[in-house]
Simulated assay, not measured.
Amino acid sequence: MGFTLATWNINSVRLRAALVEQLLRAESPDVLCLQECKAPVDKLPLEGFAALGYGHVVARGQKGYNGVAILSKLPLTDLGDRDFAGLGHARHVAAQLDNGVVIHNFYVPAGGDIPDREQNEKFGQKLDYLAEMRDWFRAAPPERSVLVGDLNIAPREDDVWDHKKLLKIVSHTPVEVEALAEVQEAGGWVDVTRADIPQGKLYSWWSYRAKDWDAADKGRRLDHVWATPDIAGAAHSSKVLRAARGWEQPSDHAPVFASFDV
């Protein structure tokens, strides 16, 4: 059973429910993983999504912050969630498709503005979160799994608009890049997006601060699709839907897609 999956930090699903519906109509992925939903599960605007065929939902939420959801045309089994770093945040949820593929939807903490855990508690929380992800995957290596989400790190030099200028900016510092690499190695994860699009600048996030985000094009690839080696070879058709960043009242993130013939 092949399927197409998309991941999108929606930055308030209630505020941008119309954009989610626009994406579902235009692209019709089988599965859409959302992050930063900013709503309790009982407040998610699910009726509109169900009307478009996305009646299967596995989600975790909280009022005003964080929140992750998996919307699907295909049946889902809820596999639970983990509270990495003990933050008490709704930042992870997992579900399984009927073909046995497990989907992990993550929203890794952004980490604040100062890349120093002594000066900035949020940066320490981010590093602790990543360390626990690493240890979990080492202890229980995943199989037939896809990991998606806003991981809040742009790991490669061509994942940011200027590598040298961003080396001391949270999301591209060497310590974060190394921590993310350890998570990836621990699970044997393959970066599906870069396997499909190995060369060139590639971004999924553009700051609201830019007057003309498109012209400035000072982006970062913070949103990722990974897969375990046993199914990574079946992935194809990766893309970032850059146009969505220019929709009316947009999220500052664009959706990232991949298809799997499994």
Rank of each mutant, 00 (worst) to 15 (best):
F3C: 10
T4Y: 10
L5G: 14
T7G: 12
W8V: 10
N9Y: 00
R14V: 06
L15C: 09
L15P: 11
R16E: 11
A17V: 11
V20R: 06
L23G: 13
S28E: 12
S28V: 08
D30F: 00
V31A: 02
L32R: 11
L32D: 08
C33P: 15
C37Y: 01
A39G: 06
K43Y: 13
G48P: 07
F49T: 13
F49N: 11
A50H: 01
L52A: 07
G55N: 05
V57N: 08
V58D: 06
R60L: 09
G61A: 03
G61H: 07
G61S: 03
K63H: 12
G64C: 05
N66D: 09
A69S: 00
I70F: 06
L71C: 04
K73Q: 13
L76Q: 00
D81G: 12
F84S: 08
A85R: 01
G86R: 05
L87N: 15
G88V: 06
G88K: 04
H89V: 12
V93Q: 10
Q96L: 02
Q96N: 07
D98N: 05
D98S: 05
G100R: 02
V102C: 12
H104I: 02
F106L: 15
Y107C: 10
P115T: 13
P115R: 10
D116H: 01
R117C: 00
E118G: 09
N120D: 14
K122V: 09
G124A: 08
Q125V: 10
Q125F: 13
K126Y: 06
L127G: 12
D128E: 14
A131F: 01
M133G: 13
D135H: 10
D135A: 12
F137K: 04
R138Q: 08
A140K: 13
P141A: 09
P141K: 06
S145T: 09
S145P: 10
L151C: 07
I153V: 14
I153L: 04
A154I: 14
R156P: 02
E157Q: 14
W161I: 14
H163R: 02
H163G: 06
K164Y: 14
L167N: 03
L167I: 07
K168E: 15
I169S: 04
I169A: 03
V170A: 05
S171Q: 15
S171E: 03
P174F: 02
P174V: 04
E176K: 14
V177A: 05
V183Y: 00
E185Y: 13
A186N: 04
A186E: 07
A186I: 04
G187E: 05
V190E: 04
V192A: 13
R194W: 04
I197S: 02
I197F: 03
K201C: 10
A216T: 13
D217H: 15
R220A: 09
W226P: 03
T228R: 11
P229F: 08
P229M: 04
D230R: 07
I231D: 00
S237C: 14
V240L: 03
L241C: 06
A243E: 10
W247A: 05
W247D: 00
W247N: 02
P250M: 07
A258E: 12
F260G: 06
F260V: 07
V262M: 08
